[in-house]
Write a protein that binds this DNA or RNA. Structure first.
Length: 576
RNA sequence: GCGCCCGUAGCUCAGUUGGAUAGAGCGUCAGGUUGCGGACCUGAAGGUCGCACGUUCGAGUCGUGCCGGGCGCGCCA
C-alpha cells in the first residue's frame, strides 16, 4: 500500500521538477504514518525538502503536489496541505478493509519477505565458555541472538546459528584444577579455600590444619564444581589422586558443564547449527597460518618475549599480544583465525552478538581479518548491555567471583521460557536491562507484559470457540468481507495490522527485535479493550455481515500476534 | 585520564533515515460498576526529553562542550 503511494509521489515530484526545468534526482522524501490520525493515513515532507531547491514557499509546492496527486490515484480519498508544508493523504476507507483477506490468505507468511534469499548469514551468539552455568547476561544474549536469527529467516536469509567456545587456553585448565582441588578435599587430602571475610585469595594461607590449599586462586567456586568432584569420587574412589587437573578432571568438567548449558538452551527452545571450538583451530593449523599471513604483511613483531599484532598500523590505539612469552596464544589470535574461517566458509554476512565487555576487542579482530583480504565491512557487532535483577524493589547483587549469581536455569524455573524470552528481548539491546522479577512472576495479564500479549492472542481463540459453540463459521480469505468494519477503533486495529510488515523489516534491518515486542504490546493494547468492551461492539451478533467482518478482524489480530510472538520465540497459546 | 553505551512522566521504558500537539504499561487521583473467575470500565493529572551552545524551515533524534550512571582500557576470556 505504501509502495504504491510512494510511486505516485515519485511520479508527481518528477513532473514538478520537470516543469521547473530541474533535471536533478527526486529527493529522498519521507512517507510515513503520522502519530496523529488527524494528519491523515500518510504524510509526506517532500515539499519541505524542495523549498530551497525550487526557491518557492513550501506550502505553495505542497499545494502543487496535492493537486497533481489527487488526479494520479483512485486509492487516495483526500489530500490536504497542512502545517509548514506537509502533504497529508487519506486513503479510501475500503483500502484498510481490503487488507484483511490478504492477511488471512498469507497467515503465518504475512510480513515475511524474500529479501534475503540466497544470502548466507551467520549469527554467532552465547559463545560462553563451558566453565559454569549460563548467567543472565548469556540468557539475554541467547534470546537476542535467536530472535535476530528468526527475523533474518523470516526475510528469506539462510541463517546459521553458531556457538564458539574457547577450550584451548588457561581458563579450562583452571576449571580442571578447581575440580581436582574439590576432589582432593572430598578425600580429606586438601583444605577448602577460606570463605567470608578471608575470601580474598591474596591473603589465603598455604595450608589449613596441616592440609594444603590446592584450590586455584582464580578457581571456580560454584557448587557445581564440588558436585562434579563428588561424582568423580563416588565413581573412582581415590584412584585419581595423581591425575593432573588438566586431564580427566578438565574433560569431565567440560563435558558435563557443556551438557548443562545445552540443556538450558534447549529449554529456551534454542538450537545451534554449529559449535566451533578453539581447539579445532589449533589442530587445523589455522593459528600458524594466520600468524604467518599477518607476518608477511609486516603486521606482527616480537617484543618482550611475546609476539605482537601491530594494531597501531590500523589506527587503533595500541598493539596487542598474539602469542604470550610462554608460547601460548592469547584469545585474540584464535579469534582472528576463527573470523577468517567464517568468510572462508562462504558466509556473505557475519553477525557477532556480544556483551558490552567484549566490545573493546572487536575492532582488533575486524581490522586483522580485513588486512587478510576478508571483506571486513560484512562483519557486524550487535552489542548488548548487562542485566540486573530487581526483586522487591531492590537490586539482587550478582557476584561472579563468589559464584553467587542467579542463573538462567533458576530464573526459567520461576517464570518459564515465554516470560523469560519476552522480558529479555523487550529492551533495546544497548540499554541496560532491569529484569523485574516481581513483575515477571506476576500472573496478572493486565500487568505482566508477556501475558498481556499472549492473552490477547488466546482471546482470539476464545472468540472462535464461542463462535463454534453458536454454530457460526469462521471466515477465511475468500469469504471474509471487512466492509462492515466502520468504527474508529476497528479501523485503528486494521491500520496496526497493516504496519506489521514494516515493523518486521525495520526490526530485522536494525537487528532490534524489541520493536516486535512493542508491536505486540500495541496490538494487545488495542485488542484487549476492544474485546473487553462487549457492550458496545460484540464480535458475535445477530448481524451476520458484521459478525463475519469482526471474526475476520479477530483472525487478523491473531495472525499478527502469532507471527510477532513466534519471531521472538515466545509461544502463542490458544487458551490461558 | 582515554574509549564506548546510557540519561525521556513518580517507576520500568518506547519514540520509524531530523517532522506537526513527545507516547505505553505500572503507580497515583477522581468517578462508575460490584456479576462468576488470578484478571471490571471510563476519565484525569503528571515533562525545561540531564545542562548549554551550535547546525536548519524544523532537534528527544545530528555536532561540540560540560554534568551524572554503567562498561572497558592485561602476556584474562
Amino acid at each position: 500500500m505504501r509502495e504504491q503511494l510512494t510511486g505516485h509521489f515519485d511520479a508527481v515530484l518528477r513532473e514538478i521538477l520537470d516543469a521547473n526545468g530541474d533535471e536533478g534526482a527526486v529527493p529522498e522524501f519521507a512517507l510515513e504514518a503520522p502519530r496523529n490520525p488527524d494528519h491523515g493515513d500518510f504524510a509526506c515532507n517532500a515539499a519541505l525538502l524542495l523549498a530551497k531547491r525550487l526557491r518557492r514557499a513550501p506550502r505553495q509546492i505542497a499545494e502543487d503536489i496535492a493537486e497533481r496527486l489527487g488526479k494520479a490515484s483512485e486509492a487516495v480519498e483526500r489530500v490536504e496541505v497542512a502545517g509548514p508544508g506537509f502533504v497529508n493523504v487519506w486513503l479510501a476507507g475500503s483500502r484498510w478493509q481490503a487488507l484483511l483477506p490478504r492477511v488471512l490468505e498469507e497467515g503465518a507468511r504475512y510480513g515475511r519477505t524474500r529479501a534475503g534469499e540466497g544470502i548466507r548469514v551467520q549469527v554467532e551468539f552465547v559463545s560462553a565458555n563451558p566453565t559454569g552455568p549460563l548467567t543472565l547476561g548469556h540468557g539475554r544474549q541467547a534470546v537476542l541472538g535467536d530472535a535476530i536469527a528468526r527475523m533474518l529467516e523470516a526475510q528469506g536469509y539462510e541463517v546459521t546459528r553458531e556457538y564458539y567456545f574457547n577450550d584451548g587456553g588457561r581458563q579450562m585448565r583452571v576449571l580442571g584444577e578447581s575440580v581436582r582441588a574439590r576432589y582432593l578435599e572430598a578425600l580429606g587430602l586438601a583444605a577448602p579455600p577460606p570463605k567470608g571475610a578471608d575470601a580474598d585469595p591474596e591473603t589465603w594461607p598455604e595450608a589449613v590444619d596441616g592440609l594444603p590449599i590446592v584450590f586455584p586462586k582464580d578457581g571456580y567456586q560454584g557448587e557445581y564444581i564440588a558436585d562434579l568432584a563428588r561424582d568423580l569420587h563416588a565413581e573412582h574412589g581415590d584412584a585419581l589422586v595423581d591425575e593432573p587437573g588438566d586431564g580427566l578432571f578438565r574433560e569431565v568438567a567440560q563435558t558435563s558443564i557443556f551438557g548443562e548449558i545445552r540443556k538450558t538452551l534447549a529449554s529456551l527452545g534454542i538450537e545451534f547449527d554449529v559449535f566451533s571450538s578453539e581447539q579445532d583451530l589449533y589442530t587445523g593449523g589455522h593459528l600458524e597460518a594466520v600468524l604467518g599471513d599477518l607476518r608477511a604483511r609486516d603486521l606482527v613483531y616480537e617484543g618482550e618475549g611475546a609476539t605482537w599484532l601491530r594494531a597501531s598500523a590500523f589506527g587503533l590505539d595500541r598493539d596487542r599480544v598474539l602469542v604470550k612469552s610462554s608460547g601460548e596464544p592469547t584469545y585474540l589470535l584464535p579469534d582472528i583465525a576463527y573470523h577468517r574461517e567464517k568468510f572462508r566458509r562462504g558466509f556473505d554476512r557475519v553477525i557477532d552478538v556480544q556483551g558490552a565487555d567484549h566490545k573493546e576487542q572487536f575492532p582488533f579482530v575486524v581490522e586483522a581479518v580485513g588486512a587478510l583480504e576478508c571483506p571486513k565491512d560484512r562483519v557486524e557487532l550487535v552489542m548488548h548491555q548487562f542485566v540486573t535483577l530487581t526483586r522487591g524493589g531492590e537490586q539482587v547483587k550478582q557476584s561472579t567471583r563468589r559464584a553467587s549469581y542467579v542463573t538462567v536455569d533458576e530464573l526459567l524455573e520461576r517464570v518459564g521460557g515465554d516470560v523469560f524470552r519476552f522480558f529479555m528481548v523487550q529492551r533495546r539491546s544497548e540499554s541496560h536491562l532491569d529484569f523485574d522479577l516481581d513483575l515477571a512472576e506476576d500472573a496478572d495479564w493486565k500487568k505482566n507484559p508477556a501475558y498481556r500479549v499472549q492473552y490477547a492472542h488466546a482471546r482470539t481463540h476464545g472468540i472462535e470457540r464461542k463462535a463454534l459453540e453458536q454454530g457460526v463459521a469462521m471466515p477465511d480469505a475468500a469469504s471474509v468481507d471487512a466492509s462492515a468494519l466502520e468504527l474508529p477503533e476497528e479501523i485503528e486495529i486494521l491500520k496496526k495490522i497493516a504496519e506489521f510488515p514494516d515493523v518486521l523489516e525495520r526490526a530485522c534491518a536494525t537487528r532490534e527485535p524489541h520493536h516486535l515486542a512493542y508491536f505486540g504490546l500495541e496490538v494487545a493494547g488495542l485488542w484487549n479493550p476492544y474485546v473487553q468492551d462487549g457492550s458496545r461492539h460484540r464480535v458475535l451478533s445477530d448481524d451476520s455481515a458484521l459478525t463475519n467482518a469482526r471474526l475476520g478482524l479477530t483472525l487478523g489480530v491473531r495472525t499478527v500476534l502469532a507471527n510477532a510472538l513466534t519471531l521472538l520465540g515466545v509461544s502463542a497459546p490458544e487458551r490461558m
